[in-house]
Design a protein around this nucleic acid. Structure first.
Lengths: 331, 331
DNA sequence: CTGTTAGCGCTTTCAA
DNA sequence: TTGAAAGCGCTAACAG
């Protein structure tokens, strides 16, 4: 069923049919409108979006790139992007890159081929890899193609950026924990090359410094549940004299808590534990995890807005807020 | 930059250019291939996917519909679909319907407009609503348009179906729990109109019946964390004589555990708790949640395969497996 | 093996 | 207001 079929059935030209069914410009006389609409649904007509896109050379598709949609952090941000897209009647194409920059680049170029209106890239990249440069190149190409782009948690790209205030969020956390009476801290950091992980660690260290403290131990680990588990084990093996552990994200913190439990270490009795993100799905763990809340959905929404609006690259920072729960309660 | 530009620069026809850059059919002589490729990347040519789709009247786009991507159950299945799509070089369009069938129908029709090759609908619908019939109609329209379709956890539609074995999974769970020594059960069911929730409850009740038992209490609630929380509170208010609680999904179970904790009810000391799904993000809760594991990612993968393959509507059932953890351990 | 050319379905000037 | 017709960029017969 094409527009031509509809037009013929309604006894009008395709131009007229187009105008009543889709067009925003001049509207035909009511009587014709009726006829066309009637013909359209008798025939079960559905416009061919590809053809429309080709003719108008513009689409209503936006892209989302995440590292892993099963990670609740990405899911929460993606949810914000999708809601914002839905409100604007935009269709969303999503891909998981699994932290593989080749996949990422390939997908960005697919979006270009699709003539996507805009894209949102979620999550930070490793700083060490030369592939970061290749990504940057593709980012520029993407922007030069006329599409909009915003990145969440990844600065240094020539596009709009939405960032949580990782440093001051974890500095605040450090202050609060010190205020609670904790003194001997360990940091379970993510990979050294991940800016988000580094910023959270550094912010925390800076916060401690204000109180004249410094971390007793810093253990690097993967930015995942298993990374947190392994880092906690390592910490225990070192037998460091620690009373509170800060893991740079909630997922790691929960992994760490499992490791501690397996080793019979009471939380918060013998060790306090804190995380970062305030993942909704993890709000019911026990003991309740002290963390730093990020407005993840909001950040996603805003990223889409910026990407759609286009314009000069700007950076917006979202404030983080400490949430104290039982995992750092002092006896 | 169009194919014509490339062709001219390489001194060949568009047909030739098309053949070397995209076409799968006859390949031009090596020398020309070189020239075309060179021209293409000097010009930074990217094919226009819309134009290709229009010319070939076929795309490499597939759709995914979820109720809510932030719900880890959907995220896990969607992840499977996306991986399978990635392997086949398919692009994924995703939308959250928030259990609104109008959104669902609208999105299905957008996918039709996009000439999507296939779609996967994840999650079960309510059985009571007349909107189910409207969905069924759109499903047929979708299939008649020539696209493939598979549903996960929703039977009764004229398309491929992938289903977890909810009934026997929860019957198994019931048997295991009885084997552990639990006797006085409460079921925190989802909405009566949700087939998945009903099947899990019924399966559990059937499993109990084998041991000559029947649930002391059945409380309906929303299929969410808050639903579980509220249902548990209600259960406590009734002061029913219960020793073990089965919530029809993990998210509800975790909500219920929080409610119990808030009321000072020890798990599993005073009350055992079990869930269903084995959500990865919740594997670290404490006490570890006894549940029924579903191969969510696998189900997603398979759904995509079926959707792509097309053919007559088939139903595939995936076995569920009981996972006993601390939340139902007997003192 | 390569080029010509007629569409794919729709939008959008440009005339009428 | 309505219609005719020229593309949008690419593919796929069909010739050569």
């Amino acid at each position: 069923m094409t527009l031509l079929d509809v037009a013929q059935r309604a006894g009008v030209s395709v131009a007229t049919a187009s105008r009543v069914l889709n067009g925003g410009d001049r509207v035909p006389r009511p009587e014709l409108q009726e006829r066309v609409k009637a013909a359209a649904d008798e025939l079960g007509y559905t416009p061919n979006a590809q053809a429309q896109a080709l003719a108008k050379s513009s689409t209503n598709v936006v892209g989302i790139l995440v590292h892993d949609i099963e990670d609740p952090y990405f899911a929460a941000i993606a949810n914000g992007v999708m809601r914002a897209a839905d409100e604007r009647n935009l269709l969303v194409m999503m891909a998981s890159t699994f932290r593989d920059s080749d996949r990422e680049i390939a997908y960005l170029s697919s979006l270009r081929a699709q003539r996507a209106r805009a894209a949102v890239m979620i999550g930070s990249r490793r700083t060490d890899s030369e592939s970061l440069a290749r990504t940057a190149t593709e980012v520029e190409t993407f922007l030069n193609s006329g599409a909009g782009l915003a990145l969440v948690s990844q600065s240094g790209m020539p596009a709009h950026t939405v960032e949580p205030d990782n440093r001051s969020g974890s500095a605040d956390l450090a202050r609060e924990l010190v205020g609670l009476g904790w003194r001997k801290f360990a940091v379970l950091g993510g990979p050294e090359t991940l800016a988000t992980a580094r910023d959270r660690r550094d912010g925390f260290v800076a916060g401690l410094a204000e109180a004249g403290l410094q971390p007793v131990a810093v253990v690097a680990g993967d930015f995942t549940r298993d990374g947190g588990y392994a880092a906690a084990e390592q910490l225990l093996d070192r037998q460091a004299d620690v009373d509170c552990v800060f893991a740079v994200n909630d997922v790691m913190a929960v992994g760490a808590m499992s490791a501690l439990r397996a080793r019979g270490v009471d939380v918060p009795g013998r060790l306090g534990v804190a995380g970062f993100d305030d993942i909704a799905t993890l709000r019911d763990v026990w003991p309740g995890l002290t963390t730093v809340r990020l407005p993840l959905e909001q950040m996603g929404r805003r990223a889409l807005e910026l990407a759609i609006e286009g314009g000069d690259a700007t950076t917006e920072t979202f404030k983080a807020e400490v949430v104290l729960r039982e995992s750092t309660a002092r006896g």
